[in-house]
Write a protein that binds this DNA or RNA. Structure first.
Length: 249
DNA sequence: GCTGACTTTCCTGATT
DNA sequence: TAATCAGGAAAGTCAG
């Protein structure tokens, strides 16, 4: 699983990301990082050390691992802004992180926070019996099963799943959506334009508007994924929506 | 290349 | 009046 975090693959992504800066220009050579000496291809240094103690190289190795593992688009990441050590990485605000990591930011940030709190077992125990980490939501469930689920699930999620995951991830939600009745699956769009913007970022479509997004949501009435609620900006998960119930995650 | 599912875009009209 | 909702229609995207 960790084999994919190789220098060579990372180099290619780095070059695509920023052709003006080479790997060594950005992060130096492996010789610059003594801590790297004891790692092996299957057991990188960053997997055994708290993120705060990562070197610049470890930070980039971790980014590469995530890009490889989750098939994230490395082109959206500003690698030059991740030319920092682990302590600096951990001290980044969420806003700074998301800004630097582009559309991959929310996932990378989420992964980092969980590694900080729970260690690399967050990855290595994937697929095995695990206690809940935090925000027992679908995104967490996805990340628990990184070895089991096809990676494209992360980027091909449907609109209703995107909405559901936002509702279940308060730190990513930023008050854009809120539950009106969690038990009934009724939720309200608080910041319609922000929601459309986020969805647009996810789909790499800067022309997305709430009007278009709401049209897509209304199509879910037909399929039973959403049910109509006769109130403005209020929707309800239908019988064919799954993963939003607290006790069924 | 075809098909189907899903999403986007545009539109008109109604409602708040 | 503006924002939002409702839904038809058509086109675009993408995976199988």
């Amino acid at each position: 699983m960790l084999d994919s975090a190789t220098h060579s693959t990372f180099l290619s992504n780095t070059m695509v990301c920023d052709p003006l800066m080479s790997w060594t220009e950005l992060f130096g050579t492996e010789d610059d990082y003594p801590s790297f000496d004891h790692q092996t291809d299957s057991d990188p240094f960053w997997t055994s050390v708290h993120p705060e103690y990562w070197s610049k190289h470890n930070v980039c190795e971790w980014l590469q691992f995530c890009c490889d593992q989750y098939k994230l688009d490395a082109n959206c990441i500003s690698f030059s802004r991740f030319n920092i050590n682990g302590l600096q990485l951990c001290n980044m605000t969420q806003e700074e992180f998301l800004d630097a990591a582009g559309t991959c930011g929310e996932y990378l940030y989420f992964i980092l926070q969980n590694i900080r709190m729970h260690g690399i077992s967050f990855f290595t125990d994937a697929g095995e019996t695990k206690p809940p980490i935090k925000n027992s939501n679908v995104l967490v469930r996805y990340l628990f099963n990184t070895c089991l689920l096809p990676v494209q699930d992360l980027q091909s999620s449907h609109l209703w799943e995107f909405v559901r995951d936002l509702l279940l991830s308060p730190e990513e939600n930023s008050g854009i959506l809120e539950w009106e009745d969690r038990g009934q699956g009724i939720f309200r769009v608080v910041k319609s334009e922000a929601l459309a913007k986020m969805w647009g970022q996810r789909k790499k479509n800067d022309r997305m508007t709430y009007e278009k997004l709401s049209r897509a949501l209304r199509y879910y009435y037909k399929t039973g994924i959403l049910e109509r609620v006769d109130r403005r900006l209020v929707y309800k998960f239908g019988k064919n929506a799954h993963g939003w119930q607290e006790n069924k995650i």
